[in-house]
Amino acid sequence: MGTTEQTWELRLYIAGKTPKSVSALSNLKKYCEEHLHGKYKIEVIDLLEKPQLAEGDQIFAVPTLVRKVPVPIRKIIGDLSNEEKVLVGLNIISVKSSVDVK
């Protein structure tokens, strides 16, 4: 699919600096450094400041992580505490594991 060549565009929607959003962001950074080193961009959107952006990405829960690129769009909600689920959700683990196995 060539997804690994692309820069991953990730967007994290939060609502204020709640413990959940803080842990989500730190978790996300950790995973990205680990699995997508240098090929990712994280944009953090605080809905308290920009509520108008919630509708565009169909956000209803926070924190929500949206994978804009590569398509298709995928969403992960929650504080991203479960690494495996995040990686599966973002479709990162399959890439990594396939490399590992081969």
Binding site: P51, A54, A61, V62, R74, I76, G78
Partner: peptide, 19 residues
């Protein structure tokens, strides 16, 4: 399209509705 991991709330919906 949605994966759930860990704690979350529906603040996003509230914000959206409030807006």
């Amino acid at each position: 399209e949605i994966e759930e991991t860990g704690e979350y709330d529906l603040e996003g919906l509230f914000i959206r509705l409030g807006y």
